[in-house]
Design a protein around this nucleic acid. Structure first.
Ligand SMILES: NC(=O)c1ccc[n+]([C@@H]2O[C@H](COP(=O)([O-])OP(=O)(O)OC[C@H]3O[C@@H](n4cnc5c(N)ncnc54)[C@H](O)[C@@H]3O)[C@@H](O)[C@H]2O)c1
Ligand SMILES: NC(=O)c1ccc[n+]([C@@H]2O[C@H](COP(=O)([O-])OP(=O)(O)OC[C@H]3O[C@@H](n4cnc5c(N)ncnc54)[C@H](O)[C@@H]3O)[C@@H](O)[C@H]2O)c1
Lengths: 251, 251
DNA sequence: AGGAGCTTGTGAACGTGAGAACAAAATCGG
DNA sequence: CCGATTTTGTTCTCACGTTCACAAGCTCCT
């Protein structure tokens, strides 16, 4: 995340409305768990119940919730509806956020067809693509529009969140356009590191990275002593007498 | 991650081949950055160059790489090809891992059409779905097969990684089937917390959660003093005289 | 009313991760 | 061959995150 906060080194003054990032990342999980409990007709749940439903331990859950306030009742637990509303309010999804998706290929289509965003605080207001063959295509009740219209859409619909599902190549350029148009939060699916100015938040989703993390642990399981194929050096040349190009990466 | 390791509390004996989880999660990013540098024809890069390309600071990058070994040259930097190979080996993507995708709907189709997995250490060996109308459909050079064939496919192709792109409802059931069939790593896109036995790793990708995290920060930006609409209590009823259902959440 | 029984909220201990800073090693020019 | 320069690998410190453990507070029963 890109988020600088002026925190003086004094005592742990948590009162300044700063919720730890790790907690913020779990609040949506709690919200989902509460919604599920609510749908099951459960009116009250203990921290133990909630923790189980959210896949964390109860001490962590209680500490997380304590940052929001004191919304439980000792000896009883949490009122599901009430807590759900409080978390939704804290996250900021009591109203809908307008979202644009840029790059309506395989992944963009999938996202456009997904019905789950509406119920979770987001409203997709535009599907944008640079390919003239795609512009005009209908997906559900929306139509793919030209990326050139970005600026007017962002302004008209007060869009603050953009999703990038273009190939890696144009992603930075698309990102810059989004930021210039006024978008201040970006969810990036392209496998590149995007750079943005201060004040703009970026999150990435990279499936290859997720799979590679799994592969690492998988290797530890099956390997560890099973596979003797541990190639140490695939010809250690190139370390001596290098042209020493170096410093070729601009920033 | 589900990963228990017997770590005695003695001195920080890092020598036992334990790479910090935070580092493991960044290795794929370094790998990608190195591949990009390599494709640009750059043969050597300093930690500063690499760090910029990977979007981290150079101290962190050097510390991360130091867990793998001493693969750089002081005063020079890192040989791009050599380091790339070492990281790929550490992650375990010098050979391909067989992957099955379960649930070939919107998202499953997008993943099936994605060409990026093959170049990153993964080979999709089967697309599975329970819907008879989908079975037999061709996607690229693959054909959707019946989920009932899971066990034989896992065994025949030595599949250790499964991807779940079914709706939330059947996800736990699908997960159980995958585990029973011998899959020990799962990437889950369904918005539910899956429970798996020890020894099985789970990672999740949840777009709604990502967007909600962005929304939280977005609210802090625009709000902070701008929006005075801070509803405190939406009728605090339901906390007194509760039927006290409690404990309704199974493990 | 008072005590037993639960469950929350939180202080304190512990562990992990991030970043600054620097000594150690390598190259290069003279 | 030596000293200046560069950049790694590592140490140290601080910040952050997790978990334990328990007092405080609530309900219910007698
Ligand atoms: N499809 C997947 O399952 C998958 C998996 C992992 C990562 N990704 C990543 O997600 C991204 C999208 O993948 P995809 O499979 O949908 O790709 P795709 O090629 O199917 O779609 C990309 C779309 O972006 C559009 N586009 C290109 N340049 C543009 C620009 N400058 N402005 C606006 N639109 C532009 C193209 O017209 C195209 O419609 C890629 O970066 C890919 O690496 C995809
Ligand atoms: N599409 C998106 O952009 C998106 C975004 C966020 C999250 N998700 C999540 O990803 C998952 C898939 O989304 P989708 O839009 O592709 O859904 P979808 O309904 O289009 O596809 C789901 C597929 O799973 C299959 N399926 C159902 N039960 C099955 C079973 N027991 N065994 C095997 N296959 C089964 C269905 O036949 C269907 O083809 C959902 O959980 C959704 O919440 C999707």
């Amino acid at each position: 995340m890109t988020r600088a906060s002026s925190r003086r080194p004094g005592p742990p003054t948590r009162t300044e409305r700063g919720i730890p990032e790790a907690t913020v990342a779990r609040l949506p999980v709690y919200l989902r768990a509460l919604t599920a409990l609510s749908d099951s007709g459960i009116a009250t749940a203990s921290s133990e119940d909630l923790a189980t439903a959210a896949g964390v331990n109860s001490a962590k859950l209680r500490k997380d919730l304590s940052y929001l306030g004191s919304y439980g009742t000792r000896g009883v637990g949490y009122d599901v509806e009430y807590l759900r509303y409080q978390i939704a309010r804290e996250i900021g999804v009591t109203q809908d956020w307008a979202v644009v998706i840029v790059g309506i290929g395989n992944l963009g289509h999938a996202l456009a067809n997904y019905s789950g965003f509406g119920t979770r605080g987001f409203r997709i207001v535009a599907l944008l693509d640079a390919d003239p063959n795609l512009v005009g295509e209908r997906i559900g009740d929306m139509e793919v529009r030209d990326f050139a219209q970005l600026e007017e859409i962002v302004e008209a619909d007060r869009v603050s969140i953009g999703v990038i599902t273009t190939p890696a190549g144009p992603a930075q350029e698309v990102c810059d356009r989004l930021v210039a148009a006024g978008v201040t939060s970006i969810l990036n699916f392209a496998p590149v590191v995007l750079s943005v100015p201060d004040g703009v938040d970026i999150r990435k989703v990279d499936l290859s990275i997720e799979l590679q993390i799994l592969a690492y642990h998988e290797q530890r399981k099956s390997g560890e002593a099973a596979l003797p194929q541990v190639p140490e050096l695939p010809a250690m040349n190139g370390m001596t007498d290098l042209p020493s190009v170096g410093g070729g990466v601009g920033a």
